[in-house]
Amino acid sequence: MDLSRDTLISLYKTMTTIRHFEERGIPETGQRQMSASVHSSAGQEAVPTGICAHLTNEDYIGSTHRGHGHCIAKGVDPKNMMAELFGRSTGNNKGKGGSMHIADMSKGMLGTNGVVAASVPLAVGAALTSKLRNFGRVAVAFFGDGGANQGVLHECMNLASVWKLPVIFCCENNGYAESTPVSYGLSVANVADRAAGYDMPGIHVDGMDVFAVYEAAGEAVARARAGEGPSLLECRTYRFYGHTVFDDPLSYRTKEEQDHWRSRDPLKLFREMVVPEGLVTEEELNQMDDEAEALMEEAIKFADESPMPDPLELYDDVYVDYPVDMMRRGANMDI
């Protein structure tokens, strides 16, 4: 691919920021004993990076339980994300959501989501809004290989195809739904094969190669923007860690398999493909790694120094308008 130096720098910067967020933020969250429900996307950085590079702040994405990478690629500030993981009032969601619900409506980020494939119709709905109001925006619905078997996804692919909505269904196939291999639960060889059932293009790409993702996503996004309807883009990728921070992936994956995919680390592949071309140097990439590391230090400091929510915020934002008395009446609350 013929990409500008600026684009190359931007792609790498996003990937290394995601990597550093996962490598630092998740253990730091664990040390603060905030949550066990945190899912690392380390290893999968090329997918959100290659796709969101084609989106603006006005475009929408719906994300998954493994969504930190989607957030960062969509422009959500890692400082606020870290604060959200630490349960602080400066978090994107004021500490109300945590890792599985990070949202930033100012960036078109419709939330990471704790229910598999549940965010897909939200993205489809955002695409409908765009179409009806002539916003010219597109929406990306991220889901995993586990989500590929959820009924709501299939209903949504049909609906989006019937209504020719500007949406890209993006399957991040990392090979495992929790511990269950994709081969066990999928009736077809590739998730992308299922696009035929909904009369949309189905593309299968190497999800460790950010350029392959970038190129395929460019076509799908262009098709959506042109009003030609949805696409299904499957990116074959791998998560370097377990389903959550607690499971040992070697209980269901072989070391050989893990080593193989580690050798195809998307940041490493990027270096191998880009540095010999001479547009970006090894030193510049190292410097971006250092900057990402510094950003995480800053984010952790910001989060630690931020206040916890006031206990009375328990009752805030349940509704736009509802009597607070009705939320605690009869519950014998302390506050």
């Binding site: 419709l110 119709p121 489809v124 409908l128 109001r133």
Partner: peptide, 25 residues
């Protein structure tokens, strides 16, 4: 455009309506 008769897909169209409602409709 505004009276959207749907396929028989309650999960999809109810969810889509929620997505549309959260983005300006």
């Amino acid at each position: 455009e505004r009276i959207l008769d749907t396929p028989l897909s309650e999960a999809a169209f109810v969810g889509t309506a929620i997505g549309a409602a959260s983005t300006g409709m």
